[in-house]
Amino acid sequence: MSDKLTKYLPRMGWIQPVLGALALILLWAFAHVAQLVDPVLLPSPLESWNAFVEGMTEGTLGHDFWRTIVRTMLSFAIATLIAVPLGVALGSSNKLYRSVEFLIDFFRSTPASAMFPLFLVFFGIGEEAKIAVAAFGAALIILFNTAYGVMNARQLRQLAARVMGASRTRILWDVTIWESLPQTFIGLRSGVSMALVIVIVAEMFIGSSDGLGKRIIDAQMIFNMPEMYASIFAAGALGYVMNMLFTLIEARFVHWGGK
């Protein structure tokens, strides 16, 4: 018996990462069957899964899912376009960085949700406010990390390029920006997560007609719990996949990171 186990276990290596998830689902099913929690608040895993599949295939979950992706990616793209060049500029000038360091730190520490009303005043209750506030939150993280990466670029490589005859601009393009990429990518990865968080919250509270946030809050209000769990799961899956995609892109683009 134990022989068989040692023979088959290595082949079952793939099962390890899903063990935790399986355990959670089993616990959930047990709590549901044993009625540890009011069944209205805690439907069975199967009910929730069915709500997810139905919502995705026949219902509007797919649409809401897509709207949230679009908003997140749009705000992330805007944040990247603004924050990366700005971060490089800030990082390459000590004086410039010093003069805005406090501002960046201050707004980075301000919860983006606290800025909702401000953005509502400026952008109205439409699509723009949601995207702008998410872009704002993501941009600060990206900006900070990019500037940090540029500032902390190893000096030796810049000296090596300088001694070859590279101009300051050339050094910035050929060395410093590359050197800062690992840190910039950390900023981008945190930025896309931040954008998703803010978009979901904005969909909940800044009069939205679609999106996962709106769907979750609607389901909660009418106690449609399977629907709510399905939407939460969709949001979680979205965040997870985005993070995973970024890790893949990062491993490809900054293959030298940490080496």
Partner: peptide, 17 residues
């Protein structure tokens, strides 16, 4: 002047990208 420079710390002098 055309200058060649070899640093002691090759790990931090080469361009890993």
């Amino acid at each position: 002047t055309k200058i060649g420079y070899v640093f002691q710390n090759y790990r931090e002098a080469g361009f890993p990208w």
